[in-house]
């Protein structure tokens, strides 16, 4: 098991290297270091020497990939790419272009993101499973078909509408919660209630429909028929057998998103003014802060790969027949 995990993580290194190359190329094609300097120095009275200084201070005056001025291995190591990439692998994100320490900012902004994504994830999962199970109970009746219709209709509504509508109705018309903002500790609840509610509702349609098919698949299996033939009540069948067995595909399916919860959600955070990693990323994109965006891309990829490994592990835990090799 441990050997397997180590092997998987080693396999992640070339992938992360690839990710780095892609983001690096994308951003330096877009943004010459000169552009970045101008953006950060403002627009009044900027001189060429100020730009040169800014660049040299941040190491952007070096060649991108290959340094002809240096000898031997330094030709590759004394470049922007090398300097930026190696540090990332050591999780040293360095300083953002505006001079703040990125690692520190990420560690601070991770919590507000989690404060939204985690409740959305947990509540959403519980609610959708409950509803899907109830629908599975009524399978074949008009309740089932109506529920599916409602689910498809809910899926067909853009997430933006949920957010705009929710904010307008609950925040502005009913005045039940503050429109936007964030606070730490217990008082955060009033700020989080609405985004969490919207997040849960937004994911309801898709989740319910998906879990319903999983339940129906289980219900049609032989062991369920056997159980029913033994005279077990429908409730017993559903809770005792179907739910337990259906949880395996459901849980192994959601494990992959678990690590990504740290990244927060871009649009919700922007709408509700929540200082999480999602809004951090958007701000970085808008201000073209290359260092932050690369750090976030790297982090995102790492978390994704961790998610994949977790999925594999969760398979072996629920089903001993699967062997890791």
């Amino acid at each position: 098991m441990i050997a397997y995990i180590i092997r998987r993580l080693a396999y992640a290194v070339p992938i992360l290297l690839g990710v780095n190359v892609i983001t690096f190329v994308l951003f330096f094609v877009v943004n010459s270091p000169d552009d970045m300097a101008r953006l950060h120095l403002g627009n009044k009275h900027v001189t060429a020497t100020a730009i040169e200084k800014w660049k040299s201070e941040r190491g952007y005056d070096k060649p991108l990939l290959f340094n002809e001025a240096q000898s031997s291995s330094e030709r590759f190591t004394d470049t922007i790419f090398y300097r930026n990439t190696v540090k990332l692998f050591l999780f040293d994100f360095g300083q953002s272009d505006s001079g703040r320490d990125i690692g520190y900012d990420i560690s601070q902004r991770m919590w507000p993101s989690l404060a939204i994504t985690l409740p959305v994830f947990v509540l959403g999962l519980l609610l959708t499973i409950t509803i899907a199970l109830a629908i599975a109970f009524f399978r074949g009746t008009y309740i089932d078909s109506w529920a599916v219709v409602i689910c498809v209709a809910m899926m067909s509504i853009s997430g933006l509408f949920y957010i705009i509508g929710g904010q307008f109705l609950i925040g502005k018309m009913l005045r039940l919660v503050p429109i936007s903002g964030y606070d730490v500790g217990f008082s955060a609840i009033k700020f989080l209630a609405l985004p969490v509610l919207i997040g849960v509702i937004g994911g309801l349609g898709h989740g319910t429909r998906w879990y319903r098919t999983i339940f129906l698949e289980e219900i049609n299996r032989d062991y369920v028929r056997t159980a029913r033939a033994k005279g077990l009540s429908e409730k017993m069948v559903l809770y005792g057998h179907v739910l337990r067995n259906a949880l395996i595909p459901i849980l192994t399916g959601v494990v992959v998103v678990l690590p990504s919860l740290f990244l927060g959600s871009l649009i919700t955070e922007a709408f509700f003014g929540i200082p999480g990693l999602g809004s951090y990323t958007i701000e970085a994109i808008q201000s073209q802060d290359f260092a932050i965006v690369r750090a976030m891309v790297f982090l995102g990829s790492v978390l994704y790969i961790i998610g994949l490994v977790l999925t594999d592990i969760s398979y072996t835990m629920v089903d001993p027949r699967v062997r890791l090799n």
Binding site: G171, R175, L176, V177, P178, I179, G181, D183, S187, I189
Partner: peptide
């Protein structure tokens, strides 16, 4: 709603402590 009322004094939508 109960928790919300419980934890704040003044209007429900007060964004400040």
């Amino acid at each position: 709603c109960v928790t919300l009322i419980g934890c704040s004094d003044g209007p429900l939508n007060n964004p400040y402590a």
